[in-house]
Write a protein that binds this DNA or RNA. Structure first.
Lengths: 339, 339
DNA sequence: TCTTGCATTGTAACCGGTTACAATTGGGTA
DNA sequence: TACCCAATTGTAACCGGTTACAATGCAAGA
């Protein structure tokens, strides 16, 4: 029994035939043209309903040159800051009729280049990357294919591509000034690897510039819980102990907190602890960790709007600067002697 | 000056002209057909290099009917378990030449249906959803368009779609049996909302079945840190205190741990605490939290393979059952009196 | 009654690959 | 020399929408 299988997807021509009109008319109904009688519009609409017709995105893409798709390249998904950012980016894109294609780079520029190629291959209308470190090959790709490209997690009006994010140097300064204001004059700064992560480089450099009048030691440790614990152990082994530990990521700060608890070093009595990112955990840990809240959600929204506007208008996006706020919690205390 | 702008993307016909061959020959070179002389192949390859030609995905999609794109519908990205899963799913898909389109549903079936429609609209070759609760509209869509569709985070060979995941009932049983073996006879079970999350429902029901010979109380609290704290407060207010608290998610378990610390209730001396998911934090908190490790990475890999195989072969995927393992840590202790 | 003109609708080319089928070429054989 | 076959390469139709342009219908104006 060669039944009705396979039930091929209805095409625009099927609809036209069923409604007794031409393909152009169906297309006009689909695109809401006013040049159609109410009567024919109804007939066409009914035929569409009847046949369960859905236009082929590929065909539309082929002659509009638009795929209604945006590619986002992120170092990892398993980090709350990126997850929150992508969550709101997807939401905003979806609202505006765009789909989000995600590619994970592991923070490796070569992987980023390869995956960017893949995204361009599949026809994304725009690209959103994290940070401003990219291979020459990446730049060449963007140039060659004229893909609207945005940088996030970074604000720098002079960057090669429009940036939507925060000024990493400025927020790092904010953090160190906060500790200074509490009277801290000797801090340890734990940060992740500086070889590929430009956000960290910017933060470290800003902190270096603003710690000329105090003692600061920098510890390069891995960007995870173990890294924070590592930093604490190095600090504990130091001859002169600092009064504060600043971690450039909350993952490290929490790792540090747990290690401090293990070593029974009281926070903030013996040492103040401060982080970056404002993870959910930082607000509820014992004690809560003072942290810099990064506007991940706002960044997703802003980046989504910026890229879609750019795609639709053809006008490159303007850089967007977002503010970060200090969330003061119990892990930091003033060391200015009361009188 | 009407210079060389816009530098339109080279098409296959441009390459053909440049190499002095026909479009069919170029297409053959692109697809690695053997029916081409080494000589012409070289000429074509050079022309491709020269013009920086990249085939249009839309055109290829149009007549192959394949977009080389898979859509994943997840409740949220801001939860380590989904992030880890998507991370490895993206990796596997990428290895096999497919791109991942992500859509976030917020756990709402209606949103899932709407976004699934969007994904089908844009032409994904396959769909991967979380859990088996879906609207009728969703099922209708899948039926109508014959999209290969997979369920993850769930294992049930009798489900409407092939499942790739773990048996939520079985792992919940494993957890409760673990507590039983430690001598616990009175436990509180904190779980998230049961209205839309079928994974939780399956776990709760399994636990109900396996706690007939002991006392168990169920607390429905929100699926976040605050929910865990909530559970602890409810427990603290109970007339008869349990010897163990089982949270069906580590987010809740950590929230509970912090609240217990705040209330100065020692873990595990006064109460044993157990979680689900095995978040990074559960391994390093003070004390470490005994948890069920869910195979998120393996699930991503398996789902990626399953959907791509299905797309390529046309043969529906076979259900895949993945094992979860108990990670025993310091938050649980035996309450069997020593003798 | 015959234009003129606007409102609708239809025809066919086009987007950029893929592929069935036709055409050309060269070597080997009768 | 004539003929056959296999190896290469070319031609053109096709995938499913969009849209420029043509065509048709109908009412108002001359």
């Amino acid at each position: 029994m060669n039944s009705s299988f396979p039930p091929k997807r209805a095409t625009l021509r099927d609809v036209a035939r069923n409604a007794g009109v031409s393909v152009a008319t169906v297309s006009r109904v689909l695109n809401g043209s006013t040049l159609v009688t109410e009567d024919t519009r109804t007939r066409v609409t009914q035929a569409i309903e009847l046949l369960g017709f859905v236009p082929s995105a590929a065909a539309r893409t082929l002659n509009s040159g638009r795929s209604r798709t945006v590619g986002a390249l992120v170092p990892t998904l398993d980090h709350s800051i990126f997850a929150r950012y992508l969550d709101s980016l997807e939401n905003r894109l979806s609202e505006r009729g765009y789909a989000l294609v995600v590619a994970v780079t592991g923070g490796q520029p070569e992987v980023e280049e390869r995956k960017a190629m893949g995204l361009i291959d599949m026809g994304v209308d725009g690209l959103i990357v994290s940070g401003k470190t990219h291979t020459q090959g990446f730049d060449a790709l963007v140039d060659r294919f004229h893909v609207p490209t945005l940088i996030t997690s970074y604000y720098d009006p002079d960057a090669r591509y429009p940036t939507v994010g925060y000024d990493n140097g400025a927020i790092a300064m904010k953090a160190i000034e906060f500790l200074k204001a509490l009277g801290h004059r000797h801090v340890f700064v734990a940060h992740g690897p500086v070889d590929t992560n430009d956000r960290i480089v910017a933060r470290v450099e800003a902190i270096r510039r603003h710690t000329r009048d105090m003692e600061a030691e920098f510890l390069s440790v891995s960007m995870n819980v173990a890294g924070g614990a590592d930093a604490v152990r190095q600090m504990a082994g130091a001859t002169v102990k600092p009064s504060a530990l600043l971690c450039l990521s909350d993952v490290q700060a929490l790792g540090a907190l747990f290690e401090l608890q293990r070593l029974e070093i009281p926070v903030p009595d013996q040492i103040s602890l401060m982080g970056f990112d404002d993870l959910e955990w930082s607000a509820v840990s014992q004690p809560g960790i003072t942290s810099i809240h990064l506007p991940a959600e706002a960044m997703g929204d802003a980046a989504g709007d910026a890229i879609v506007d750019w795609i639709k208008s053809g006008q490159p996006a303007q850089p967007v600067s977002l503010e970060a706020a200090i969330k003061q919690r119990a892990s930091t205390r003033s060391v200015i002697s009361q009188r």
